[in-house]
Nucleic acid binder design. Structure first.
Lengths: 353, 353
DNA sequence: TTATATGTAGAAAGCGCTTTCCAAACAAAG
DNA sequence: CTTTGTTTGGAAAGCGCTTTCTACATATAA
């Protein structure tokens, strides 16, 4: 408790305490050459004794950079509730941030009338050295990137750069994810496959369907239009879509729900209606939300390497900050998480055939 | 695109453009008296034309305050996955923050060796005017508050101030929540009540049990020791605890799980084992996580007014920043969310009796 | 010994702003 | 016409730091 620390201790007190000038203190702190070891230790001791730490505002002002990275995350609460994996992304960002001496300033507008306003204030305030923008459908409405470019500061989009192609972006290969799903189902022998799609569809999600479709096409399998239902990403909508596919006279032997929550909804319905998974039909989701691992049976799904996406995003931003000219898009692979809701066709079959 | 904006526009350019001194510009921007309206508009026009916005670092340096509130949130990703309601708290904080011109700097250490380090850097850097600390069991290990006091900056704890009583804190009345649960169950006629407790138990959670206990005591109902199971807050652990209570010869007619996830686990087990809710037994959770509303049947639970907690936390911090001497603890009420997993005793009863 | 190189520390400028204080300028009063 | 009061705007100091440039030692070479 009783440190010598008293209110504001500045570089001047340290200099006085060590009997040197403030320039010397500054140089010691920045570990610059040209200071005798004896002086150096003297300063360091003074710093220790006074419990000094530099005022980052003053430093930022002088250096012309702040050591702060802005994270522009519109509607954070809503988004995270929908997409818990974004949390992992933040984690990856944070990790990489802490390796260097950067800090995260979180901006999360929820002003529906003018979502840019709070961002704008931050952006224009010269607070950050660079920014990361979490992609949400909302951001396309605001002239964020125009603002960002005006500010002449690097920024990268974490997410699918729909309609915003001339920017740096890091995102998961959802197309590949869709392919993985199709490959998996096909390799299990399924040919009659249902799809639970959704609309409106955030930019990247369409890729899941396109990748899926592509593999089916390559195998000359036609995705029966009548086997496609639409939901809204909520579990409830999967629950409602399930009977549309499963109560037909010719139900699919496998279903791809383009996100886990809807898949879980289907499972729910199946359970309540006496259908066994994967004996009666296989189901596969997308996202690998926490609930996917704990559902009964555990859901086979596709996982986005969220932490890695966060890391890569920060890394890209750092390269930009260092004046490099890095690749503009970084796409990280997805992975099939094979659990217990998918099984070979022979074991399945609602149809006797 | 083609705004007049070019690289760095400072107060000097604005002054030149408007044909006044920088002091005048500064005064206009701060809306101070003593400037003729004509001059004022001239300056404002110049600001507009150049797209100027002040450098917040410089301003912060002069004013001695930064306009930044630090949010110290250890292990954010892990925590939010466990407690989605913390998201709402952040939302409440953000709202209140945006009303004034403050910004949120997020510090989320995950450095297991020395969790304080990243916080410490921030804290000592004079970056924030004040801080909010999200209570996690981890924070008690670090000498955060010592550091905070040394920095001489106000801070408030968002959470139950276990062992840290001499601080400002805002938290939910979990004791009251426990009482609500007991009242509800009792009013439905239940007398034989099971409890799914957990350990280790974060500070505030114990209050749920204590409140619950108190009401039972008041009604001279003895909480049968053998009707108490322990989990670890995960759904899985509720699933495992369920048979311990429900497969007894004398099962309870109602169960209080001290969090929703465990309650959901119990429901899961019940469903798989042919028990109907609420016909065969009632169950009630705590937290009101999103899944509680969408479960089948929807879970009766207790809700913490998370957004309000966030708001109150910020409000308390603002009062502190303004030099007031506000009450040190603010406890906001909890609320029973009555859904479909609880029913009067007559309709229940695994026992024929 | 003088000339030159090298190592070390301080003086001073300045980052972009706020704020105090002072000087005009003008109006009102004596 | 002077005195006093009231606006209104600018000069200047300074927030706490970094960085360049200069000055002084001391060491090396001629």
């Amino acid at each position: 408790m009783e440190t010598t620390t008293r209110s504001k201790v500045t570089i001047y007190q340290v200099a006085a305490e060590a009997g040197v000038s403030i320039s010397t203190v500054s140089k010691v702190l920045a570990n610059k050459a040209g200071i005798r070891t004896a002086t150096r230790t003297r300063v360091n001791e003074a710093v220790e004794r006074l419990g000094y730490s530099p005022n980052l505002m003053a430093r930022g002002l002088m250096r012309g950079q702040t050591g702060i990275i802005g994270l522009l995350f519109p509607y954070i609460a809503e988004q995270l509730l929908i997409d818990p994996h974004l949390l992992r992304v933040i984690q990856g960002i944070e990790e990489t941030l802490n390796e260097r001496d950067y800090n995260l300033l979180l901006a999360t507008s929820k002003d529906t009338l003018n979502p840019a306003s709070s961002f704008e204030r931050l952006l224009r305030g010269h607070y950050f050295d660079g920014a990361i923008i979490i992609e949400t459908s909302e951001i396309y409405g605001m002239d964020l990137h125009k603002l960002l470019e005006q500010q002449n500061r690097p920024w990268v989009l974490m997410g699918y750069p729909a309609g915003l192609l001339r920017c740096y972006a890091v995102y998961a290969d959802e197309f590949m994810g869709g392919q993985l799903v199709a490959d998996h189902l096909l390799s299990l022998g399924h040919r009659r496959i249902g799809l639970i799609n959704a609309r409106p569809q955030p930019s990247g999600v369409g890729e899941r369907v396109r990748g899926f479709q592509k593999v089916l096409d390559a195998h000359q399998i036609i995705l029966d239009e009548s086997l496609v239902a639409f939901g809204n990403f909520q579990e409830e909508s999967g629950y409602r879509a399930a009977p549309l596919l499963l109560q037909r006279p010719d139900p699919p032997s496998a279903i791809f729900a383009i996100n886990d929550r809807m898949a879980l909804g289907v499972m729910h319905w199946a359970h309540e209606n006496g259908l066994r998974i994967p004996e009666d039909f296989s189901i596969i989701g997308f996202d690998d939300i926490p609930a996917a691992a704990t559902s009964h049976p555990a859901l086979t799904t596709v996982c986005q390497p969220a932490v890695e996406i966060g890391r890569e995003t920060m890394r890209l931003l750092f390269r930009l900050l260092e004046g490099e000219k890095p690749p503009s898009h970084i796409i990280v692979g997805t992975e099939l998480i094979c659990r217990s809701t998918t099984a070979p066709l022979k074991a399945s079959g609602l149809l006797a055939s």
